[in-house]
Amino acid sequence: MLWYQIVFLAVIQGLTEFLPISSSAHLILPAQLLGWQDQGLAFDVAVHVGTLLAIVGYFRKDIMQIIVAWCVSIRDKQSTPNSRLGWWICLATLPACVAGLVFDGFIETHLRSLEVIAYTTIGFGVLLWLSDRYGATTKSEQDLGFKSVLYIGFAQALALIPGTSRSGITMTAARFLGFSRESAARFSFLLSIPLILAAGGLKSIELVSSNLAVDWGGIFMGVILSAISAYICIYLFLKWLNTIGFFPFFVYRLILGLVLLVIVYL
């Protein structure tokens, strides 16, 4: 890829990975509108590493506390808010892992199309707005329980469908359950860590086994730019979320979905 393509795609990936607007929809548009080539497996690995660095860097204190408490809970059978949060993250990750193993082939064959992405972008955008408009705001992360975590976990599994948005669907589920905007966003972000780690690991294995030539300069640029843009995105999103809500993201998804439909049918 040319340098400006690397810059554009890395920044877009970093921004859209954590906003509730679907990164898959945004990464397919340049190829459709500008005729760019697919970014390739090596670049996918790079931006996954970048977004993982961003989320781990931002929540580093929380992550360390959760890991320590989780390990202590295994050793001493002691339950604390942080140890429970660790177990909830593990539990909520399972449905997406199972769904990925079972349905990956079907999704790759039948659902990776502009038409599907257009309808899911609009449909799940409407659900996001409804959850924020009518959901209560009485619960925090301490109110997470077995049923609510499974509900969010199964919702996350739907994000395997392109255009859904992993962050968007998990925040939607949490808001419908009555969790505050900030609590829904924080749990969604923490929940992304094992999945990004798993996805990046699988893509890395594919890359190593493929013996593809790697543009290490482009890879390094992709990691750095996606990490910086993702970190800034997380910071600003959490800072402004209670003020702006999810309505602007619903409007954006609606416009994006309509643009994609125009591309599909015209």
Rank of each mutant, 00 (worst) to 15 (best):
L2E: 15
V11R: 11
E17V: 00
F18R: 00
P20Q: 00
S22R: 12
S22F: 04
S23M: 12
H26G: 07
H26C: 09
L29Q: 05
L29P: 00
L29D: 04
P30G: 08
P30E: 07
A31F: 06
Q32Y: 05
L33W: 13
G35K: 09
Q39H: 14
A42G: 15
V45E: 10
H48V: 03
G50S: 04
L52S: 13
L52G: 11
A54M: 10
V68L: 15
R75V: 13
D76G: 11
Q78L: 10
R84H: 09
R84E: 15
L85M: 10
C90F: 15
L91Q: 09
T93V: 02
P95Q: 10
C97V: 15
V102G: 09
F103A: 12
G105Q: 07
G105M: 03
G105Y: 04
G105T: 02
G105E: 08
E108P: 00
E108C: 05
R112Y: 05
S113F: 09
E115V: 05
V116D: 15
T120K: 09
T121A: 06
I122T: 12
G123H: 01
F124V: 04
G125R: 05
L127K: 03
W129C: 08
S131V: 07
D132Q: 06
R133P: 09
Y134L: 13
Y134K: 07
A136E: 12
T138Q: 14
G145H: 10
G145W: 01
S148T: 11
L150W: 10
A159C: 11
I161F: 08
I161K: 01
G163T: 13
T164Y: 02
S165P: 09
R166P: 05
S167T: 05
G168A: 10
G168F: 06
A173V: 04
A173Y: 05
A174N: 07
R175S: 07
F176S: 01
A184E: 01
A185T: 01
A185Y: 05
S188L: 02
L190Q: 04
S192W: 07
L195Q: 01
L197Q: 06
L197W: 03
A199Q: 08
G200Q: 04
A213M: 13
G217H: 15
G217Q: 11
G222W: 11
L225V: 03
Y231A: 01
I232N: 00
I232W: 06
N242V: 00
N242F: 01
F246G: 07
P248Y: 05
L256S: 11
G257E: 09
L258Y: 04
L261A: 14
Y265D: 07
